[in-house]
Design a protein around this nucleic acid. Structure first.
Lengths: 344, 344
DNA sequence: TAGAGCCTGGACAACGTTGTCACGGGAGGG
DNA sequence: CCCTCCCGTGACAACGTTGTCCAGGCTCTA
């Protein structure tokens, strides 16, 4: 009776264990384990009996116990910034693809751009003993991961580098991409170009701003402070920035949008204005081709794939020094970036 | 020496355990457990000593072992179709949000629309003993999940109903949405309307086709077989369908696109043609507003949120009969659906 | 026919944690 | 002053699996 009670209030409902299977098949515990894991040394006849018992009981191996025993979880964690951001879909998918090829599962969660949440999430994944971690940083101090990395959690940062620790990172060439985009506008005759970006705390954002300034300097053009609007991607702020730059006494004739969210808002804002304004945006998006928006495209899938491959290389025991990989960007000319300056 | 060897080749690198912490703090194992879990009954002084040891060793609780002991993983699985599909981003994010609110993590993976892969993935998640499972079905036979559900894995299907088993499902009103969309076109004077959708094996696809037929019938309009193209969402096939419908002797004057992927291809195909063709698409997308595409919008976030809430309600012990929840859709008129028929 | 070797199968410990229970000491009441 | 009660603490088993090791029975050979 005590036994019945135990079984009844058992936490997994009433999941059969290998012991149950062994009892039913009339074999030893280890023999069941062998069959389940396809290990050699089991007579076809015994194997059949075990399989039947597994079938009859609806047994499924408890991987939690397995993990505890074996030490490897065959699981990698992905901490991203926002699952709903179209940029991260392909990235995440590419990571999953590689993980799958290595027989691993993916746990993920988003930090919602909150450093505290990023840390909480990353450490929760470490507590689950993920074999490796891919992080798209929200914060700029990752020293909290040092003990984990020392303890053997392979870690790769994507899209932005780690802060204050030495770790692998796979990045797009934000600086070069932005410089190329702005140079493209300059080549089409623009002299006064506005830059609207994300908070400069974010590495990619500051790099893109740096790229903007470099392109202007290369062309010997001055940069007016009023043309530069780093800040949040909050739509209202972006709209205000667009308005101020275009309605100034000496308005800008072209805009560079620092990322996809900014770009979307800028496009919406420009759609309401009579005169066309040249625009180049960082990040490609679905349908952007149909709208004729010239963009600096980064290859999100390649970013994810490269990072994941690097991660699994480390998990396979390769142990070279942390490295920073930078992937190139592509300028896709579609019209909006080729609009000439309208007479001031 | 044997001990050193054991530690050295240990699988988690050299992670300290509660035992190590206990030894260093000079307390018992259970006391460490109490401190780590914030249980009462520990002197402030003892607690401080334990905390110091934890700090010094860089201890982090091994949740695998914890799970094994407690039975609950505080993890839910999400099996979706394609992480890169913009429709699933917000859905996935909403699920994560709810999971987070319940203190649970999310493991996910995509089936790539392959039923076999869906099954493999779902069962792998069950082997990890996720507490619950949210599935966007790729296949149409989910009997393989019956033992798991019986064993206590809460399961909710989203976007499409489960096949051959009785389970919770949260769906958009595909039938009603498609009917409304087609009725909208009819209201704007169209008589010959083409339908381009996904494979009819997919529940939503066949429901949308049924909605199309219902709207036509309601208006007393005949449906020519040549106007209906169910099939894959493969771009080349969609382009061919568009061409054939528009270049026929009696061409259609409007198109209804069965989902976002079809819609994108249709928009691209129509952009190359001289005469405007009316279009309504199922699923909204970013930038679709700027392109003036009239759509039947479903609320992906609400879908995910509703499903996740239902899941956690079950996990909290509520045990009502499986139910099917249908969420309404919204027609967003933006121009493309209001184009009148061009003279045939 | 006996000994050696191989092959199948099972007993047992260990993985790191938590629940149960028991123990020792200090406080409070009779 | 002694007994009781409570509180802080720790020993121990258990969760379900896998690695190690040994036993028993078989075959093959001398």
């Amino acid at each position: 009776m005590a036994d019945i009670a135990r079984r009844t209030e058992h936490r997994y409902g009433n999941r059969p264990t290998m012991k149950d299977v062994a009892a039913r098949a009339g074999v030893g515990l280890k023999t069941v384990s062998r069959v389940v894991n396809g290990e050699p040394g089991v007579t076809p006849d015994t194997e059949r009996r075990v399989q039947e018992a597994i079938e009859a009981l609806g047994f499924r191996r408890n991987d939690s116990a397995r993990v505890l025993r074996k030490g490897r979880t065959a699981t990698v964690g992905l901490v991203l910034e926002d699952l709903a951001d179209p940029f991260y879909g392909p990235l995440s998918r590419a990571v999953e693809e590689v993980a799958r090829a290595h027989g691993a599962l993916l746990i993920n969660g988003s930090s919602a751009e909150d450093p505290a949440r990023e840390q909480e999430l990353a450490l929760a994944l470490c507590a689950r003993r993920v074999d490796g971690l891919i992080v798209i940083p929200a914060g700029d101090d990752h020293r909290y991961l040092e003990p984990e990395i020392r303890a053997g959690v392979a870690t790769v940062f994507v899209d932005r580098p780690a802060g204050l620790i030495d770790a692998d990172a796979v990045l797009s060439d934000s600086f070069g991409g932005a410089r190329d985009g702005v140079a493209h506008l300059i080549a089409h005759g623009h002299r006064r170009i506005g830059f609207i970006g994300d908070r400069p705390r974010i590495h990619t954002a500051s790099e893109r701003l740096r790229g903007y300034r470099a392109a202007m300097e290369d062309a010997g053009l001055p940069v007016d402070d009023a043309w530069v609007s780093p800040g949040s991607t909050e739509p209202e702020r972006v709209r205000t920035a667009v308005r101020e730059m275009l309605d100034a006494a000496e308005p800008v004739t072209a805009l560079f949008a620092g990322n996809n969210r900014v770009m979307v808002t800028v496009v919406r804002a420009l759609a309401e204005r009579p005169r066309p304004v040249a625009l180049v945006g960082f990040d490609d998006m679905e349908l952007a081709d149909l709208l004729g928006i010239t963009v600096i495209a980064q290859d999100a899938a390649a970013l994810g794939r490269t990072a994941a491959e690097r991660l699994f290389r480390r998990l396979d025991g390769v142990d070279d020094v942390p490295e920073r990989v930078v992937l190139g960007t592509t300028l896709l000319a579609r019209g909006s970036g080729e609009i000439p300056p309208s007479a001031g």
